[in-house]
């Protein structure tokens, strides 16, 4: 009989290792943890059975609860991705992602923060739609951030007029800039609209139903630049031209205004004589949208 008493830290590490091990295909506990230890041995070492449930069955309840909870939470934020690649691929992808990036935050809100970059390295889950899937994931994560990121007091039009090439600005924290390989914003908007209709007609959108990858027709790659931002309390998408995107990105990276403009217009096809007017219009739009803020020094 093993008489070694586990320290609280040992117990928590052992239990977490089992609870966070992915489930079997029929949603049961696996025989081994990811590092090859037998889950039955771990369960029996730490968990007491009762008259109805074995140690393994009792620990399995927590294993199942963990995976149901994190998978549901991720699916709430990446509903369009699930429809684009289909539920079968999505489910396998979500398990692999959460295995690679378990939650490191006290809030489930941040669960998907690494998904777009991780997905870009894992084409095995997306089939031929790899780049589109990554684009959709980027948009959906930007949506999460735009929804509740901070809002700073923006510069007003008068303040914007006083800016010089030496000025340093920061962007509104809820503004997220997303570069896409496909016009994936159209796909996401279309899916959100459809989901809204289904929800109002059926009362509730079905999250757990099996879905084949959605029909997208012949979708062609097209570089697309997107701002995902909040107006009042709603999140909107706004298409940007490449130069606009580059200038805003340079501001976001902390460049002085003159450098940011230079970076944005370095490869532009906008005629030089028109550039001043175009820039004025962009800055006016950004100021009206409240995107430009004073830089914290």
């Amino acid at each position: 009989m093993n008489t070694h008493r586990m320290s609280l830290l040992e117990l928590q590490r052992e239990m977490a290792a089992v609870v966070m091990t992915p489930l079997t295909a029929d949603e049961g506990m696996r025989e081994k943890t990811l590092d090859g230890r037998r889950t039955k041995a771990i369960a029996e070492k730490m968990i007491a059975p009762n008259s109805r449930l074995s140690s393994v069955e009792r620990l399995e309840l927590y294993n199942r609860q963990y995976w149901f909870r994190v998978l549901d939470s991720l699916a709430e934020d990446f509903g369009s991705l699930r429809k684009v690649i289909g539920s079968k691929r999505y489910d396998a992808m979500a398990i692999a992602y959460l295995n690679a990036y378990p939650s490191r935050s006290f809030t489930l809100r941040n669960l998907g923060s690494k998904l777009p970059e991780w997905l870009a390295e894992h084409a095995e889950f997306t089939g031929r739609r790899q780049k589109l899937a990554v684009d959709v994931a980027k948009i959906e994560w930007a949506f999460v951030e735009a929804f509740d990121n901070a809002e700073l007091q923006p510069l007003n039009m008068e303040e914007v007029k006083t800016l010089s090439s030496e000025s340093k600005l920061q962007l509104q924290p809820h503004l997220r800039l997303v570069a896409l390989n496909y016009p994936a914003d159209e796909v996401v908007l279309n899916l959100q609209e459809r989901e809204g209709r289904q929800a109002s007609e059926a009362g509730r959108a079905e999250e757990h139903e099996e879905l084949a990858p959605m029909e997208l027709g012949a979708m062609r790659a097209k570089q697309t630049w997107l701002a995902v931002h909040r107006v009042e309390y709603n999140v909107y998408f706004r298409r940007l031209v490449k130069e606009e995107f580059e200038i805003l990105k340079a501001i976001e990276c902390g460049k002085r205004l003159g450098e940011a403009i230079q970076a944005g217009l370095s490869e532009t096809r906008i005629a030089e004589r028109k550039q001043a007017a175009v820039l004025r219009e962009w800055f006016q739009n950004w100021a009206e949208l409240g995107w430009l803020c004073a830089k914290d020094e």
Partner: peptide, 8 residues
Amino acid sequence: VDGNYTHD
């Protein structure tokens, strides 16, 4: 534990 959250 060790920075990983089970949310349970």
